[in-house]
Design a protein around this nucleic acid. Structure first.
Lengths: 232, 232
DNA sequence: CGTGTGAATATTGTATACAGTGAACAACGT
DNA sequence: ACGTTGTTCACTGTATACAATATTCACACG
């Protein structure tokens, strides 16, 4: 009946006494979360195209839920920047003009620089090990032409760096920005593959040396280079 | 019956043919917006204290609306960072620990630097005039000890700078951050008054000269100095 | 006394119903 | 033909009702 993934329905009662002290209700994600994730994926993968109207009842029917969780998901997506909502006139998938896209990179560059600087200052040995693992995997994939694996590895790299920086607000802000960037430039992504991983390696080297200045510069330059590449 | 400001009820029919071509429905703000603003104000001015539970039905009753607009407002506030929501366990006013507060300044500093740099590159003569107006008003207020006027002028200064930078995403991000910073440090604010306006003047000077590097450095340093002052 | 167990209550999550607004279109006059 | 007006339909905004979960408190038991 319900196409949305409902994890908890797969969990029979006996999970109640499973290891983590989390209650059953905590596992049981609200529908709004399921709808949010499903809708975001649908927008990113092009099921809903930019500018397309998102009618609450349609979406609710599609996922077989009521309009309430749907509305909540739409509002969340508008904050994330994937949809635009006009009062009394409904929601549509956001349309990116060139200016907006440029703004994304402008904001992301100094933040990515900050991440690299903080990571250089605060990284633990374990952080460094993990960064090098991801770096190795990404470099190998780029070298061997497995381009389809690169977007996920790229995301993991930047998330790992943000984790090493130890600033959750920063990590969250960046995660949102890069989600949208990946969406906007979905078509052209996975270009620039080897260049990109060379730049990642340079960031990790600076982080390893605890050289905050160099790390910051290379982090910011990395995003600027990506922006330039996308502007073709 | 309804304590929320409902602008449209004050507008008789004949406003329909008033100057701006906006429709009546566009003026007629959704209740969620009214509740959102009212709740945020209540949190900022201390009516609701950090950690306090925000029960949907209570708030709905207080503003004499149903739970739906209330829920939507609460979700929006959680995105803005004023409240924390746990699934199935409701919302409470966010509590700042020192770490979180530090993160705010860490993220804001490079963004404010970016704003100053972009403003230096893109400002129009009109932007500069406006910035100098605000600067003059703020400096005068600081010099004459009208401390109560400073927070608003400070906000206006930073908003004007962001406007001159011509990046709406950046302006929006910063507006959210500084809202929260002002809330967190409400008690200690309006200190540092003259220092702060000297720093503002330095930023405007760099913006006037179109010196992007100097503007960026002074913008970021201004926030770092503010952070240091708050850490007493 | 503390501790666990259960019922009762409070509160959130979800669905449905209704009201109000905007947009499209047909009927009408000019 | 063209614009104007009235009407209808689709959709969002809001309220209410119900279901599911969390929390509280009383009470029995050790």
């Amino acid at each position: 009946m319900n196409n949305v993934a409902r994890q908890w329905e797969m969990s029979p009662e006996h999970v109640v006494d499973a290891r983590p002290a989390t209650t059953v209700g905590a596992l049981h994600l609200p529908l709004r979360q399921a709808v949010l994730d499903a809708l975001r994926s649908a927008i990113i993968d092009g099921t809903y195209l930019p500018g397309e109207r998102l009618v609450e009842e349609e979406i609710a029917a599609r996922f077989d839920v009521s309009r309430n969780p749907t509305r909540e998901a739409l509002h969340a997506l508008s904050v994330e920047g994937f949809v635009e909502i006009e009062p009394r006139r409904g929601a549509r998938v956001a349309t990116m003009n060139a200016r907006w896209a440029g703004e994304l990179f402008e904001v992301r560059a100094p933040l990515e620089g900050l991440v690299a600087r903080l990571a250089a200052q605060r990284r633990t040995p374990a952080d460094l090990v993990h960064l090098r693992d991801v770096l190795g995997a990404g470099t190998a994939a780029a070298a061997e032409g497995r381009l389809d694996e690169l977007p996920a590895l790229n995301t993991e790299f930047h998330m790992s760096l943000a984790a090493a920086a130890g600033n959750e607000l920063l990590a969250g802000t960046l995660a949102r920005l890069s989600d949208i960037i990946r969406w906007v430039y979905a078509a052209r992504i996975s270009m620039r593959s080897t260049r990109s991983w060379d730049e990642h390696a340079a960031i990790v080297a600076a982080v390893a040396d605890r050289d905050a200045e160099r790390a910051e510069r290379r982090g910011a330059e990395h995003i600027s280079a990506a922006a330039a590449a996308y502007e073709d």
